[in-house]
Amino acid sequence: MDLKINQQTKPMDIKSRVELIDITSYVEKEVENSRVREGVCIITTPHTCAGIIINENEPGILLDIVNFLDKLVHSGEVYEHNKIDNNADAHLKTLLLGSSEVIPVVEGKLELGAWQSIFFAEMDGPRDERRVNVIVIKK
């Protein structure tokens, strides 16, 4: 079975310490450009303080997500890693989020629910070297 694989990378310009950036339209465009009708789309980020999540793009829930993570992982705690970079909370929050998502491609479109959006979740900005990888694989 021959697989068709299309991979693209998008640089992310991060302005704040914590940002949830909707990348849905970018990912949809890459799926369209791949011309894959049936397959999967894999969205990843190769950073230990940034993640990829799927949720609703509604300001209240986005703030709730950030506040929830802050309650679980306090930035003011004493962490061993802070002796090196003072960003252990960002690493731990990203551990909870994960660094990738896999979404089916059906009839050339992402199989997302009505309210689902894809987000790049930065936990240790500002940064200018972040990136997102979108890989579309034909079934």
Rank of each mutant, 00 (worst) to 15 (best):
M1R: 12
D2E: 14
D2Y: 14
L3A: 14
L3Q: 13
K4Y: 14
K4R: 15
N6R: 12
Q7I: 14
Q8N: 15
T9W: 10
P11G: 08
M12H: 04
D13M: 12
S16F: 14
S16E: 15
S16M: 14
R17A: 14
R17C: 08
R17F: 10
V18G: 03
E19A: 10
E19N: 10
I21N: 07
D22V: 06
D22M: 05
T24E: 03
E28N: 10
K29H: 08
E30R: 04
E30I: 05
V31M: 03
V31W: 01
S34A: 14
V36I: 13
E38Y: 14
G39I: 02
G39T: 07
V40S: 05
C41P: 00
I43L: 03
I43T: 03
T44W: 07
T44P: 02
T45V: 09
T45K: 01
T45R: 01
P46K: 08
H47N: 08
T48M: 07
T48S: 11
T48V: 08
C49W: 01
A50P: 01
A50S: 14
G51I: 02
G51K: 01
I52E: 00
I52C: 00
I52W: 00
I52A: 00
I53D: 00
N55S: 10
E56G: 06
N57I: 03
P59N: 07
P59Q: 06
G60M: 11
L62P: 02
L62A: 08
D64T: 05
D64L: 09
V66S: 08
L69I: 09
L69Y: 06
D70M: 14
L72Y: 04
V73D: 03
H74G: 15
S75P: 04
G76L: 11
G76W: 12
V78M: 09
Y79Q: 05
E80V: 08
H81N: 05
H81L: 09
N82E: 05
K83D: 07
I84W: 09
N87G: 07
N87Y: 04
D89A: 10
T94Q: 07
L95M: 15
L97K: 02
L97M: 11
S99V: 07
S100I: 07
S100P: 04
E101R: 13
I103W: 01
V105W: 00
V106E: 08
E107K: 13
E107G: 14
G108A: 06
G108P: 03
K109A: 07
K109R: 10
L110C: 04
L110N: 01
E111S: 15
L112Q: 04
Q116T: 03
Q116M: 11
I118C: 02
I118Y: 01
F120K: 00
M123Q: 07
M123R: 01
M123K: 02
D124W: 00
G125L: 06
D128Q: 13
R130C: 06
R130F: 06
R131P: 04
V132D: 00
N133G: 08
V134G: 00
V134F: 03
I135V: 15
I135D: 04
V136H: 01
K138A: 08
K138T: 08
K138M: 11
